[in-house]
Design a protein around this nucleic acid. Sequence first.
DNA 1: CTCTTTATTTCGAGGCTCGAAAAAAATAGT
DNA 2: ACTATTTTTTTCGAGCCTCGAAATAAAGAG
Lengths: 415, 415
Amino acid sequence: MLVDEIARPDDVRRQNRRLVLAALRGHDLLSRTDIVAQTGLSASTVSAITTALIAEGIVNESRDGDVTANRRGRPQVALTLNPEIATIATVELALNLAHTVLFDYKGQVIAQEIRRIPTLDATAGDLTRAICEMLDGLLAGMPGSAGRLMHISMGVQGVTDAASATMLWSPITPDINVAFGDILCARYGVSVAVANDCSMIAEALRWTDPEHYTEDFAAILLSHGIGMGLYLKGKPFLGVQSSGAEFGHMLHVPNGALCRCGRHGCIEAYASDYAILRRTAGEDEQAQPAQDVDAASFNAVADRARSRDGAERAAFRKAGQAIGSGLRSLFSLIDPVPIALVGPGAGVFDLIEPDLREIVSGTTGWGGKPDLTIRCYPDEHPLILQGCMMTSLLHLDTQLFAPGDLREAPLRRAI
Amino acid sequence: MLVDEIARPDDVRRQNRRLVLAALRGHDLLSRTDIVAQTGLSASTVSAITTALIAEGIVNESRDGDVTANRRGRPQVALTLNPEIATIATVELALNLAHTVLFDYKGQVIAQEIRRIPTLDATAGDLTRAICEMLDGLLAGMPGSAGRLMHISMGVQGVTDAASATMLWSPITPDINVAFGDILCARYGVSVAVANDCSMIAEALRWTDPEHYTEDFAAILLSHGIGMGLYLKGKPFLGVQSSGAEFGHMLHVPNGALCRCGRHGCIEAYASDYAILRRTAGEDEQAQPAQDVDAASFNAVADRARSRDGAERAAFRKAGQAIGSGLRSLFSLIDPVPIALVGPGAGVFDLIEPDLREIVSGTTGWGGKPDLTIRCYPDEHPLILQGCMMTSLLHLDTQLFAPGDLREAPLRRAI
DNA sequence: CTCTTTATTTCGAGGCTCGAAAAAAATAGT
DNA sequence: ACTATTTTTTTCGAGCCTCGAAATAAAGAG
C-alpha cells in the first residue's frame, strides 16, 4: 500500500549502530571520541553502543594501537572490528573462470582458489558443483573459519535478479535461470547475494576511492560484454526487477548489428570485444558473435589500430560512437556523473575516446555543465573481488549485526 | 561523508505522524480504528498521535460523517483533515498559458484563474509579474485563506532544478535560469517547489490511479516537447542534479534531425508536434523547429494520416519509432514499467503504436517479460494541476506538520 | 435497566538519545 | 612524591517514543 514503514523506538538504535559500524569499517582504528566526531552522536550514546558491540564480540578494544600517544589526559582507547567474529566468502564467475575467496570480518583474505573452467560447455550443475567444491576446500583448509561463515556474495557476468539471488541469463553458459542463491543457501546455511559483476565493481570503487565516487557515478565494464554498475544518491541502483542497468543493451542503431543477446542494434553489438573483432575481420554485422575472444588477439587488433589507419581503427571508432551514444542518452536521463571505464576496453581508451567525447559533447543542450570525467581501470578482477567482499561485509554490518537479530539463523538469501 | 543520517527518538514520532496523515490523505474519513488497521500502529500510539493532531488543528473529528451506523458497541468517530488549517497555491506555466489555483488542505479548489500570456515574447520579469498578479488577485478575493498560505507548487514546461527551485531552460520563453522559487518565496514568505510538468503528471497518476501506478512507472508527455516523469521504488526520480529525466533528449539518431534544444538526433526532434509537422510539410530535418504549433493544424495532420497513406502517416510512424527506441533504451536501464502517455500525442496513439511496439518488442533479450502496458491521457492539464496540488499537500504533510516544526516560519524553498 | 460489544484513552514498562556530572587515566608542575 | 590539570569514558536522570493491558466511554440488545 501507500504506507511506508512504521518506525519503532529500537529502529533508532539499529540505525545508530549502523553508523558506528560504518565509521569503524571506514577507518579500522577509531577511539570512541573519534566515533563521536565522525557520526555526530553524543558521547553517551557512542559509549552505550560500543559497550554492546564489544559485549557481542563484534568490536574489540585494541590497546597496542595507541592512537594518540604522549598526550595529556586520559588516553583514547582504539576500537576495531573483530576479524574473527565472522567469515564471508566471495565467488566471481566469469568466462572460463571461477574465483573463490574467504575473508575475515575486517576484509582480510584468509584463503582463495582460482580455477579455470570451460564455462561455455558447463551446465548449471557443473558450475555449482565446481563452486561448492572450491568453497568446501577452502573451508576445510581453515577449520577455524568454517563455523563462522555468515554470508556469500557472488558476482557473475550476465543478467541477475538480486531479489531472488538468481542468474537469469549469462553469456558464459547456456543454462538460464540458475538459482545460485538458493543452492548455496541450502548447502551452507547462510544468506547469499548474487549480483552482476558491474554492480560489484561500482561497490568497490565507492570504497576504494570515495573521493571521486561518492553519491552518483557509473562503472562501465568493457569486456566480453558491456555492463554497467550505477550508484545514485549514494545507493546502488538496481533496475526495477533488480536485474541491473543493462547499459550494453540500450539501443544504438535500430535494426542494427546482431547482438549476442539475440536482438539487433544494442551498444554491445558495436562496442564489445566480439563486435570489434567481427568488424575488423570484415564479417557482416549480422554474423553470429564469437562466444569467446582471447586477450591476445584483441590486443593485436588494438596494436594494429594504433599503428595504422585501417579497418581496425575504424572498428574502435565505431565502438567509441556506440558508447558515446549510450552515455548521451544516459546523461539525458540522470544527468552527467563521473564515469569509470573498467576492463580490457579501458586499456584501449585512447582509441575510442575522441569519438566518444564528440558524441557526448553538448550533452546538456540548454547550456549546463558539459564536462565529462572518465577514469580507466583496465583490470576488472580486483574490483569485482573487492566489490563482492564489501557487499558481504556491509550486509553483515547492516542486517545481521543489528541488535536482536544477532543470534537468529540467517535462513533466507539476501536482498 | 559516508555517514547517513543519525536517528533520534523523536524521528520515530515524525515518521509515524506521516503515516497517519498519509492514511487520512488517502481516505478522507477514517476512524482511529481504521488508522490502526491501515498503518499497523498500536491503538495507543494512534490515539496519542491523533489527539496531538487535533490539538494542533490539523485534523478534525467529524461527528456527522458516521462511518459505521447502527452497529453494536461504541461508535467510531470519523477523523478528517481540517481543510482550513492551510491554503496552498499551484501555478502551471505552459506555452502561452498560466494557470493559478488556490486549494485548501483537503485539496478542494478555493479559487482559480487561467490567463493567456504570449510567453514566447515574455521576459522572466513579465512572467513573474503575471503570476504574482494572478496569485495576489486570488488571495485578495479569499481574505480568509490569504493568511494561511503555506506552500506554492509550480509545474513548468522545460528543464528545472528542484533543489534551487529554478527553471533552468524552457521552450516557452527566451530567458533562462529563472529562480521562480526565490522570487515567490520572497514575496509570499512560503516555501516553493518548482518542477517539470511531467514530474507533476507522474505525481498525479500515482494518487488518482494507485492501482496501476504504484512503485515504478513513467509518465511521458507528448506535446510541444517530449518529457518524462519517473517513479522508481515508490519515489519520484529526479536526476542527479535534479533536473529531471529528459526522455525527449535521449539520442535517437546520431547527428540526426535538429532539435529545439540545439542538438541533433534527440527523440524530440522526431516525435514532438513540431517534428511531425516539419516532416509533414516536407521541410528539411535541419530546418529550425517551429516555436508554436496550434492544436488545430496538428489534428488536421493526424486526420490526414488516418485517412490516407502519405507523408503524414510516415511522420507519425517516425515518431513511433523514436519513442519506441527511447523506451527500449529506458527499459534496458530500469526494466519495463507501466507507461502513461499524456498530452496531444496520446490522442494520436493509434498512429504511432504499431511502430513503437515493434521497436520495443524483444526488450528483454534473454527471454524476460515482453509485455508492455501503455495507457493514454490526451489532456495533460488536469494531471499537471493535480500533481502540483499533491506536491504541495504532501510537502505540508511530511515537512511542515512534523512535530516541532509546526510553528516555525517556512523561510526557505522546498526540495 | 442491565448486559454485551466495540472504540478509545490511560497507565506503566521498557526502549532510546542527550546533557550534566562523575569517574578514570594519563601528563605537568612544584 | 604528590597534587593539579587535562582529556576520555561512563553513569545518571530527564524527556522522548511505542506498546500491551486495563480502564473508561458509548452505543445496541435483551
